[in-house]
Amino acid sequence: MSRATEGKRNWAVWALLGPGLAFIALLLIVPVIDMTLISFRSESFGQILPGFTLANYTSLVRDGTYVQIFLQTFLAAALVTVLCILLGFPVASLIADAPAKWRGLLYFLVAAPLLVNTVVRTYGWLLILGRKGLVNETLAWAGLIEQPLALSGNYVGLIIGGTQVFLPFMILSIASSLVAIDRRLIESSAILGAGPVRTFINVTLPLAMPGVIAGSVLVFSLMLGAFVTPLILGGTAVKYLSVAIFTDALVLFNLPRATALAMVLLLVALLLYALQKRLLRRFEYYA
């Protein structure tokens, strides 16, 4: 190709990219840079003061409350991820082994809840786990409890709700890996003398790892940044990163501290994204 047409082509490429790049720059890059700058400013009564300070960050480390928030948030995300793997694997495996005529329905039942509004799904859990919710009412009716159990407005509700909201992603991710496994590998293992448990551990599980990892990173990041579920089900009792950012920004109007917290979340999210790419590369057997 001649230099002239090459140049013309480049020009066309940038013209096509222009609107998209401007859109992202204006609405994502500039605001995130602004946010980063604010996290280094101080404030007084909702007013952002000029000058540069690291106080917003140092206080995150020094202040025990924030350390606790980080720990609880990470723990919740990890717990939800593990629960999603444990609950998701049997379903994904059932889907992968199901005959074609059933597979569609099984997929549908997993994916359909994703299309229902997250606020609505979380509200459903409030009805189930609340003080006068389904679980407590049923147990009281059966005479098993005197006092209602505290299932919402705390860590328990947050974990249960978060697991249900993000579980479909894990199932879809693991199922896509399992469906891709050649049945003959499983059969080969059986013919070579391995029982179902051994075949699962030595063949199925390693080959499902790309799906498990992709699903885990996705669920972990989604739960880490989750806002609706902690807000509605965790209540004020649970110290959650997203809720703390919200409270600092919109209730206490301390934008510098809210943005400093947000920066931590952003860095972790980007780190996870990079980590996922690297991890998945390790499991590319067919490369």
């Binding site: 946010m35 997203s242 943005t259 947000a262 952003l266």
Partner: peptide, 9 residues
Amino acid sequence: VPALIVGIA
């Protein structure tokens, strides 16, 4: 980028 970050930015 988590939606929360987009929101606050």
